[in-house]
Simulated scan of single mutants.
Amino acid sequence: MVLYTVPPSVSAILLDIEGTTTPITFVKDVLFPFIKDNVKDYLRDHWEEEQCQEDVRQLRKQAQTDSHLEGHVPIPCLSENQADTDRVIQGVVHNVHWQMSMDRKTTALKQLQGHMWRSAYVTGQVKGEVYGDVVPAIQKWREAGLKVYIYSSGSIEAQKLLFQYSIEGDLLKLFDGNFDTTIGHKIESESYQNIARSIKCSAENILFLTDVTKEAKAANEAGVHVAVVVRPGNAALTDEEKSSYHLITSFKEIALSIRR
């Protein structure tokens, strides 16, 4: 087995989620279809709740901002009668489906998705998937005194839900903190410097594991150590990318340095 040896300077391991700890198919084939298939029922069931109404207000505001985009879907305003409520709900459903078909990541869409996923996790309709090599590896790293953090484009709430309600049980205790794009975008080197400052260490004290080479490049430019994770279903790497980074196919291939 080919091993990647963690540099002695590393005191924190930063993990991507999709394609690294969790199959990309979980997001594509489980989480996103859940939203598309259940958004109408969710809105009907939670319509009287303030949280749901706030989600709709934010989506309507986003729809107004998107009015210049081709194919945009407006959300009508609400009056008092039930027929109008059904019309508004249908407008929200069409808007959500449109945004998701465009792979948009607006704050309004993420907010509604996060609330729907939270309900699905809590009720057991969805369980977070993690690769079998992930939990044993993180336990070993923590026993060795390393800190472990998550950095994903998904919201911190969505990250925590995935690991709290996982097929392996509640895994939140394995992590020392979470970061999302509020700290900066993952393909910008400054984001990794921001994370280093946040956890009170230098960039060279961090090892970042990701399946996305653009993220790996940004982390490298910030001075962070990087290994690229090659999992089934992940994007294929070019020969240049393969030669530019340390590659692993499992967390089992990561060896810790002997610390003196």
Rank of each mutant, 00 (worst) to 15 (best):
A158H: 00
Y149V: 13
L43F: 03
I17H: 09
D84R: 07
T106I: 00
E168V: 06
Q139E: 13
Q90G: 10
T238D: 05
L237I: 13
I254N: 01
F179S: 03
K40Q: 13
D16W: 00
V228Q: 04
I258Y: 06
I199S: 07
V212H: 04
M1P: 03
I199Y: 03
N194G: 05
Q164Y: 04
S257T: 14
L161V: 00
T20K: 13
E253H: 02
V229E: 08
S9Y: 01
L15T: 08
Q62Y: 03
S67K: 14
M116P: 02
V228P: 00
D55N: 15
K252L: 11
S153P: 00
I17V: 15
L247F: 01
L59D: 06
K173T: 08
Q139Y: 03
I195F: 02
L161F: 00
T123L: 10
V2E: 09
H46K: 12
N38I: 02
R260V: 13
C52H: 07
F34S: 02
D133Q: 01
I17F: 10
V230L: 07
P8H: 15
Q62H: 05
T238Q: 02
V6H: 02
L14A: 09
L237D: 10
M100I: 14
P232C: 02
V93S: 02
L174S: 08
N81A: 10
S243C: 06
E18N: 14
D55Y: 01
Q82Y: 01
L78R: 12
E54K: 10
K105P: 04
Q164R: 12
Q139V: 15
Y121E: 06
L247P: 00
Q64W: 15
T182R: 08
E188R: 07
H68S: 13
N178D: 12
D45M: 06
E48M: 12
Y4E: 07
D133S: 01
D45K: 11
K242T: 03
N95K: 01
R231T: 02
F163D: 05
Q62R: 14
E80S: 12
K242W: 03
T65E: 14
T21I: 15
F208M: 14
K214T: 15
Y42Q: 11
L69S: 11
M116K: 01
W47H: 06
I13F: 10
E70W: 04
E157V: 06
Y4K: 10
H94K: 14
W117D: 10
T238A: 08
R197S: 13
Q99W: 00
V39I: 13
D16H: 04
L209T: 08
I167C: 09
H97N: 11
E253P: 02
G71P: 09
T20Y: 05
S101V: 07
T123F: 05
P23I: 02
H185A: 14
E48T: 11
A12M: 10
E241V: 09
S152V: 09
Y121V: 07
H72M: 10
F163C: 09
H246A: 15
T210G: 08
E129S: 09
E168D: 12
V230R: 01
V2M: 11
S257P: 06
S191F: 01
T21K: 03
E48R: 14
E129M: 14
I75E: 07
I183Y: 03
K160R: 15
K217M: 10
T181L: 06
Q90F: 00
T25C: 03
K214S: 15
R260T: 15
